[in-house]
Design a binder for these strands. Structure first.
Lengths: 139, 139
DNA sequence: CTGGTTTGACGAATAATTTCGTATAATTCC
DNA sequence: GGAATTATACGAAATTATTCGTCAAACCAG
């Protein structure tokens, strides 16, 4: 019996999206070069993936220029959001806080990143969204 | 050509792990009942997965008791950590803070959860790990 | 002990993923 | 313009993932 087709990108598709997110709209060869630098992967393979992704709708191909240029259909943020939601629901029992704690405890954030996370938390505190400092004395 | 076998659990394997994490060591039928309650899934299917997972090493089977009992090989925390690391590296360019911000902005945390996240951030601030308040004036 | 029920092992079918080879089309450069 | 190079399309092969059906083994009630 079949597997229900997931809307989420596969591992390989994510590799390609990651490159395109970084470089912006790119040709197959550009993506290939970037990927081949880190991992063994043939040109045909990259091309095939990008064609499949175009069929699936995660990439759009501009055929008006000659080395055709591909760009991501959805903004990076959206895709990231889907993936995070998926992980939270499947692995963390729906608790975003569990994921956050796990991530912070394991992969350290820099002091500046921590500050920005606090700011975000603060803005969530007063739902009004009124601008305010972190409450911590940063002087 | 083949796909490199990933050490990460598949979607279906995660479903089963989730149940076993919740229930503790369980029989196939127990897992089946839990899963079938939320999703269409036959007994044979669950059994097969649990057998495959036992081969792969993510589950251990106690054959001394008759309805055989399966338990997770690795603690939930470890598996969660692997998955989070994987997501951070593959989707967030290695930045845990990006993941955290994304998760918090999208899936709201409760005030209490936010407090605990702040406490964690504070404990990261002074690397010593010395106990200290959140720094926020709670008056 | 025996028939019936529950469990477990096994294999098959289908779909998705990953990987290229090769053939065709387009472009470029003497 | 034609050869050489570069791009693109197509399809096939290997592997994994997912889902059950079926049959044998173990267990239980009478």
């Amino acid at each position: 019996m079949p597997r229900p087709p997931s809307t989420l990108p596969t591992t390989s598709e994510l590799e390609i999206l990651r490159v395109i997110w970084q470089r912006g709209p790119s040709t197959v060869r550009e993506v290939y070069r970037t990927l081949a630098a880190e991992r063994e992967m043939g040109y045909s393979t990259v091309l095939k993936f990008m064609q499949i992704m175009t069929e699936k709708g995660s990439l759009i191909r501009d055929e008006s220029v000659r080395p055709q240029v591909y760009r991501a259909t959805r903004p990076r943020r959206d895709t990231q959001r889907f993936l995070v939601r998926d992980l939270i629901s499947r692995v963390f029992g729906g608790s975003s806080a569990s994921l956050v704690m796990q991530a912070l405890a394991d992969q350290k954030a820099t002091p500046d990143e921590r500050r920005r996370i606090r700011d975000l938390l603060d803005s969530l505190d007063d739902k009004g969204g009124r601008a305010q400092g972190s409450g911590r004395v940063t002087r």
